[in-house]
Simulated assay, not measured.
Amino acid sequence: MGVTRLKRKDRRNKTVSRLEVQFLKLGRNIEQGSRSKESANSQLAKNNEVLAKIEAEAK
């Protein structure tokens, strides 16, 4: 039995779903664990610190 080619629609769905998964993985928050430990001087940490100060002043 020969290998069947995917129809254009199915090939597109395969590609789109692969890219979607990749996008979601990149957009996720940093997970808990030693390998994904966020450095203290990263921009995200600095932003969170500033936001925390603003929230504290607003209360």
Results as ranks from 00 to 15, higher is better:
residue 1 M to E: 01
residue 2 G to T: 05
residue 3 V to M: 07
residue 3 V to F: 06
residue 3 V to A: 06
residue 4 T to P: 01
residue 5 R to E: 00
residue 5 R to T: 01
residue 5 R to L: 07
residue 6 L to Q: 08
residue 6 L to G: 02
residue 6 L to D: 00
residue 7 K to Y: 02
residue 8 R to H: 05
residue 8 R to A: 13
residue 8 R to V: 07
residue 10 D to F: 03
residue 10 D to R: 09
residue 11 R to I: 03
residue 11 R to C: 08
residue 12 R to L: 13
residue 13 N to R: 13
residue 13 N to T: 09
residue 13 N to K: 13
residue 14 K to H: 06
residue 15 T to A: 12
residue 15 T to H: 05
residue 15 T to D: 06
residue 16 V to H: 04
residue 17 S to C: 03
residue 18 R to L: 07
residue 18 R to I: 11
residue 19 L to P: 01
residue 19 L to C: 09
residue 20 E to S: 13
residue 20 E to I: 07
residue 20 E to L: 13
residue 20 E to Q: 14
residue 22 Q to I: 07
residue 24 L to A: 10
residue 24 L to I: 01
residue 25 K to C: 03
residue 26 L to F: 12
residue 27 G to A: 11
residue 27 G to H: 11
residue 28 R to G: 14
residue 28 R to L: 08
residue 28 R to H: 09
residue 29 N to S: 13
residue 29 N to H: 04
residue 29 N to M: 03
residue 30 I to R: 13
residue 32 Q to Y: 10
residue 32 Q to L: 09
residue 34 S to T: 05
residue 34 S to Q: 12
residue 34 S to H: 05
residue 36 S to E: 15
residue 36 S to C: 07
residue 37 K to F: 04
residue 37 K to M: 11
residue 37 K to N: 04
residue 38 E to C: 05
residue 41 N to L: 12
residue 44 L to A: 13
residue 45 A to W: 04
residue 46 K to H: 02
residue 46 K to F: 10
residue 46 K to L: 07
residue 47 N to F: 05
residue 48 N to K: 14
residue 51 L to K: 08
residue 51 L to A: 01
residue 52 A to E: 12
residue 52 A to R: 06
residue 54 I to L: 14
residue 54 I to R: 06
residue 54 I to N: 04
residue 56 A to F: 06
residue 59 K to E: 10
residue 59 K to A: 11
residue 59 K to R: 12
